[in-house]
Design a protein around this nucleic acid. Structure first.
Lengths: 342, 342
DNA sequence: TGAACACGTGAATACGTATTCACAAGAATA
DNA sequence: TATTCTTGTGAATACGTATTCACGTGTTCA
């Protein structure tokens, strides 16, 4: 038999209402009685039933983390791992727990929406990398359901959005490559429909044009294989680039493999840089230059904001937050002596 | 106002009980009425409230995934990413959702226990890599709370446990290195108190002794840095090993870095192999030999089993499941011509 | 034809909690 | 002293669902 407030009440000789009051720290309860009740609670090892509590207060104290990924593509994804772990860590100390769901396709995405929202499973949502200002978000807004978008800044300023400054990221990476004297810098970009792609390409373009250099963008898929193939092709061309800026560290790794295969020396003949500053960067010989997007900070902001919205005490201030990013320079893009990472 | 069964009932001209019956596919409801009710449900876009349902059925349809990790150590952890993503994928199609929690220390671990179990937040638990037959498990057993242990086989055969065959994994990796002609094979092991360490070391020992070779075990921490340091030390010694079997791919990567630093050629002068077969293995020049532990299969078994236990129709059969593993041979341990991974 | 029975439905109840309402006892005010 | 105000408590209720119980209808069997 489950220990309930009813039982505690009986044992302590009070009513169930009083037990509830003790638990919610209601000031209007006699110290002696509170003492007695707490004693019985302790002794019976009672914990409140979160289900009953949810029903009553209309709060589940669960936060949903939803991201859209192809099935099976998550395994080596450092972004995902960082995202989840960072979120869980942020939630420590709050009385919220994390519910993770992944939408593999559009159908599934609708299903996730139903499962988590319509059924009132979660109190709020963190949406990661949604592709565009989609139907889903409109519905969320209409229902005025608490949510924060992570990783995709929209024009709509009524939304709570945190994003990295991808334009800046693209720019500083490109500038760094230019500073190192690379004269023909190509960008190996992800799918062009993603905002993240567009933004980083923008930054890349800006930086180049500020010094009168011509852009060279190759669109590809995320993942090592696609990047390797694309890099092989472009590096084989006469007048190929002598530097490649890849959309993430994995793609950059693909570029390195292609270079090795073609016996092109990095960084002497080819400079390479990526994004995310994943642990991977330290595994590459000489280290790989990468832009740290500060996912940890983003997540922290998103969670904090989401909880504020849920609890109705949203602070004033910008709903849109753009996180700074920082470049980590390593051997893959530094001509001259290769910095040892040991 | 939230759309409830009460409202549906009124609109359809039936009782709330009937609506509930329609939703639970109760056969005893007149087709015409069912039709009518479904129509109203459709039209009102009704979804049942999972909180009320949980309270009533005493089922939350949430599964908890708990693992113990140091704070901040998850970011680059491919095991973690694979674990979570695989779990989420397994849960598609079941009507369960995933609740993730991480216990950073013993105190937090108790807290997680309280949050998830005592409050009846989740219906069952997947415990990952618990260090030993700990107090927590005993309590779970006493409460006869559904749970499955992943990654640590105990002697206690009443527990539902799925583990990889770490002894086998250690053995086949070692055998492979011996087959390649390496004469002095060291094992760079993880913390000795972990079962996983002990088992792989056992397999390593078995394999060696079957051919009369002497073991050489170095205990270290997980992570690149520790492995690199340990490898540097051992490789600097006179009569150092000409092959190193590392406890995971990251540690193996650390060994590679050390070798590069000392200008020891891999695989000619030093054979290297790891465990997990993470995406990392393909990033290494020539590829890295690694034992695939089939985490996907383990997770699938664990989830399936857990749901069976929760729903009370636990199939007969072994509660202990040991997953096979398979060796992926790549350039880091194959003397002679290096296999290209392109 | 009457009794036993299956069937479909609505009313009532329970799940465990938080909260409102009512009420008694005492304090404060006149 | 009579009246209003606080204060602390218990009784009652609501949250939205699933399920049991009761009941009326039509069916089957003797």
């Amino acid at each position: 038999m489950r220990v309930t407030q009813q039982l505690i009440a009986k044992l302590a000789g009070v009513s169930q209402a009083t037990v509830s009051r003790v638990l919610s720290n209601d000031a209007r309860v006699e110290p002696a009685i509170r003492e007695k009740v707490l004693e019985v609670i302790q002794q019976q090892n009672y914990s409140p039933d979160v289900r009953a509590r949810s029903l009553r207060q209309k709060r589940s104290h669960l936060i949903g983390l939803v991201l859209r990924r192809e099935s099976g593509s998550l395994h080596g994804d450092p972004f995902f791992a960082q995202l989840v772990s960072e979120t869980v860590e942020c939630l420590i100390g709050t009385n919220y727990q994390l519910c993770v769901d992944i939408a593999t396709d559009h159908e599934r995405q609708k299903h996730v929406y139903d499962e988590l929202l319509r059924t009132r499973r979660v109190d709020g949502l963190i949406l990661v990398e949604s592709e565009a200002y989609d139907e889903r978000i409109i519905r969320l807004q209409e229902d005025s359901f608490p949510f924060v978008v992570l990783g995709n800044a929209f024009e709509n300023s009524t939304l709570n959005v945190v994003d990295n400054d991808n334009v800046l990221a693209g720019r500083i990476a490109t500038q760094h490559l230019m500073d190192q004297g690379y004269s023909h810098i190509a960008m190996l970009a992800g799918p062009p429909n993603l905002t993240v792609t567009r933004d980083r390409v923008s930054g890349y373009m800006e930086a180049l044009s500020s010094r009168g250099m011509k852009p060279h963008v190759i669109y590809s898929d995320f993942g090592i294989e696609g990047a390797r193939t694309a890099a092989l092709e472009v590096l084989n061309q006469r007048n190929g680039p002598n530097a490649i800026l890849a959309m993430d560290d994995f793609m950059a790794a693909g570029v390195l493999q292609a270079a090795r295969h073609l016996e092109i020396r990095v960084p002497e003949q080819l400079g390479v840089a990526g994004f995310n500053n994943s642990p991977l960067c330290l595994l590459i010989e000489g280290g790989m230059t990468s832009v740290d997007l500060r996912i940890d900070t983003m997540v922290r902001w998103a969670i904090q904001r989401l909880i504020q919205v849920i609890e109705g005490d949203e602070e004033a201030g910008d709903r849109q937050k753009v996180m700074p990013c920082e470049l980590h320079v390593r051997g893959s893009s530094v001509r001259g002596k290769v910095a040892s990472i040991l």
